[in-house]
Design a protein around this nucleic acid. Structure first.
Lengths: 208, 208
DNA sequence: GGAAAATCTTGACGACTGTCCAGGAATGCT
DNA sequence: AGCATTCCTGGACAGTCGTCAAGATTTTCC
């Protein structure tokens, strides 16, 4: 194996991955708009710069594309609250930063969140989605738990809930906000920080 | 309008409603198994005692059937926790009864819960579902709020969260349990009461 | 009993789906 | 330049979908 051959193969593999990512991004746009059920491969291809046949050159079938998409998306969003954890120096500051970040992503990335909840629901019926969804939900849970732990440290009070429950709680409130978005976006986005301010202290054991 | 005519017409209308309900129940069975996207009208009809064409005799289109189904289902389940509210005489008792009821419905009616979360997700993409879903979510929120208020009364402490947030919190935890069901049903059902015991006290203001 | 109304079946329609494939276009390599 | 490989297109395929309507069947009513 010569150096050029190695470089060529890697560059070829890179190109391959790059195309897959391009397709994934197109697919994510379409999926975010239409949802899993309504987004056909033809529609996805139309919203890209390729024809509908190319999908099966890079992905075995639709499910593999979707799973790839959802993992691709996760890789981008799972570090969303890292800055909140790192930059906050007091408990109150963290709560504010966390609430602001929630508002920001709810405002700017609503289609992606809709898609995520859609896929998570679909995974209850489609066996093939379950593994990827479970993995990502686990990752999201860990992401939230980092926030809660940091909050706990800053406040000097231990968490009142275990990681799964804490994630469920915050995810539930976020999902309600997402669902309420169509009926009054401004009101929802304004109310959310207040909900977070009320909710976060409850996740820690009462002041001793 | 004679008495017999009135009786005949009412009986006819009753028959009509009865058929609609029969179809709704068949549809709910199929929808609960396959989810919204995979449940075709033919499949729904096959799981009933009618042929596939009859659906359009009783419903304008698929969406009207689905919406009818979901409202029909709601009417059955929205009083689920009334006994918890009425029969509990202490705060701890209510928490236990509530947790047990959650476990019971999670065990016995998982397909219906899956369907509900599926439809709620679909409503983010399908305009036609939104109104019915919003209405039912509102009803569920009120159902949960009755539990929280009763709990608050029994404990002598005011709620720490408003109704929407309280619903989001509990719904989120329940949804996580439902999602976790396929990987270890017994473990999930056993863990849930503990989560409820930990969570419920947090919904009330700290002991003064 | 027989007309009228309702209920239901059956088959068909056009549109859309995921998948596959034959062949053209582009690219890289020697 | 010319071959070989990779990449991409566009059409075809079998299947499924929601919808509809014509006719058979059943029920209702006088």
């Amino acid at each position: 194996m010569t150096t050029t051959a190695t470089r060529a193969r890697r560059s070829s593999a890179d190109k391959h991955d790059e195309r897959r990512n391009q397709l994934a991004e197109s697919a994510l746009r379409t999926l975010g708009e239409l949802g899993y059920a309504r987004a056909s491969l033809r529609e996805i291809a139309t919203n890209s710069e390729f024809s509908h046949g190319v999908v099966h050159y890079y992905f075995r079938d639709k499910l593999e594309l979707i799973v790839y998409c959802v993992r691709y998306y996760k890789a981008q969003c799972v570090r969303r609250y890292d800055s909140v954890v790192e930059d906050s120096t007091t408990a109150d500051e963290l709560v504010e930063a966390f609430g602001a970040k929630l508002v920001e992503t709810l405002r700017d990335e609503a289609p992606m969140h809709r898609l995520w909840y859609d896929l998570r629901s679909q995974s209850m019926f489609e066996e093939g989605l379950r593994e990827a969804v479970t993995y990502i939900d686990q990752t999201l849970q860990e992401m939230i738990w980092r926030v809660v732990e940091r909050y706990s440290d800053l406040a000097g009070r231990p968490p009142a809930l275990a990681s799964p429950a804490a994630y469920g709680v915050l995810d539930g409130v976020f999902q309600q906000a997402l669902l309420a978005l169509p009926r009054g976006e401004d009101a929802v986005l304004e109310a959310l920080p207040g909900q977070v301010r009320a909710l976060m202290p409850l996740l820690l054991a009462p002041q001793s």
